[in-house]
Simulated assay, not measured.
Amino acid sequence: MSPAAGRWNWPATASAPTPWPPGPTESQAQTGAGLPETVVQQIKREEAARIPLGRRGEPEEVATWILRLADPATTWLTGQVPAIDGGLNLT
């Protein structure tokens, strides 16, 4: 898509914030699934242990990067899919 969009000077960039479901961001997804709180906490600990930064991300942290990618000043980035996952994709 990036080469085609480049003809019109449109950046073509996506983001890969987390593997889903469930992603390593803090959310109500697991609690909303009806899992007991003890199970939800265990899942969160296990996920955090696999993330090189050692913790689950916050939705605001993912949003910050999405806003940066969408910023009109980001003019030299195209054809990329940055993984916004605390390094999880490196493991």
Results as ranks from 00 to 15, higher is better:
residue 17 P to A: 10
residue 84 I to P: 03
residue 23 G to D: 09
residue 33 A to T: 01
residue 22 P to K: 05
residue 27 S to Y: 14
residue 26 E to K: 10
residue 40 V to R: 02
residue 54 G to I: 01
residue 57 G to P: 08
residue 55 R to T: 09
residue 51 I to T: 04
residue 83 A to P: 05
residue 72 P to K: 01
residue 27 S to G: 15
residue 84 I to F: 04
residue 7 R to D: 09
residue 5 A to Q: 01
residue 86 G to K: 06
residue 88 L to C: 07
residue 10 W to M: 03
residue 59 P to W: 02
residue 84 I to R: 06
residue 40 V to Y: 07
residue 85 D to K: 01
residue 66 I to W: 06
residue 86 G to W: 06
residue 89 N to V: 03
residue 88 L to S: 00
residue 55 R to G: 11
residue 91 T to L: 11
residue 13 T to Y: 00
residue 56 R to G: 01
residue 45 R to Q: 03
residue 6 G to A: 10
residue 28 Q to W: 08
residue 14 A to V: 06
residue 21 P to H: 03
residue 1 M to W: 09
residue 23 G to I: 01
residue 60 E to Y: 05
residue 69 L to Q: 11
residue 15 S to Q: 12
residue 40 V to L: 05
residue 60 E to L: 09
residue 85 D to N: 03
residue 60 E to N: 05
residue 22 P to R: 13
residue 52 P to R: 06
residue 61 E to V: 13
residue 59 P to V: 02
residue 72 P to G: 08
residue 15 S to V: 15
residue 66 I to D: 04
residue 78 T to W: 10
residue 70 A to C: 14
residue 36 P to I: 13
residue 76 W to K: 06
residue 32 G to M: 09
residue 19 P to T: 09
residue 91 T to Y: 15
residue 46 E to A: 05
residue 20 W to C: 09
residue 54 G to E: 07
residue 86 G to C: 02
residue 19 P to R: 09
residue 33 A to S: 11
residue 51 I to P: 02
residue 66 I to T: 10
residue 25 T to G: 01
residue 8 W to Y: 12
residue 54 G to S: 07
residue 60 E to Q: 14
residue 67 L to F: 11
residue 27 S to V: 13
residue 11 P to F: 05
residue 23 G to R: 02
residue 59 P to M: 08
residue 19 P to E: 09
residue 46 E to K: 05
residue 65 W to L: 15
residue 8 W to L: 08
residue 24 P to M: 08
residue 42 Q to L: 03
residue 28 Q to K: 11
residue 58 E to G: 00
residue 8 W to I: 00
residue 59 P to A: 07
residue 72 P to D: 06
residue 78 T to M: 12
residue 26 E to D: 14
residue 26 E to Y: 10
residue 40 V to W: 00
residue 66 I to F: 02
residue 69 L to M: 15
residue 67 L to D: 06
residue 16 A to D: 04
residue 72 P to C: 03
residue 25 T to W: 07
residue 54 G to V: 04
residue 27 S to D: 15
residue 6 G to M: 04
residue 87 G to S: 03
residue 82 P to C: 00
residue 16 A to S: 04
residue 15 S to P: 09
residue 57 G to N: 08
residue 57 G to I: 12
residue 14 A to R: 00
residue 54 G to D: 05
residue 86 G to R: 06
residue 4 A to Q: 04
residue 28 Q to H: 08
residue 69 L to V: 15
residue 10 W to H: 03
residue 67 L to P: 01
residue 71 D to R: 04
residue 13 T to R: 03
residue 28 Q to T: 15
residue 68 R to T: 12
residue 68 R to E: 06
residue 41 Q to G: 02
residue 25 T to F: 07
residue 44 K to A: 05
residue 89 N to F: 01
residue 53 L to K: 13
residue 23 G to E: 06
residue 25 T to S: 15
residue 46 E to D: 07
residue 69 L to A: 14
residue 41 Q to E: 01
residue 17 P to T: 12
residue 55 R to E: 12
residue 9 N to M: 08
residue 3 P to S: 01
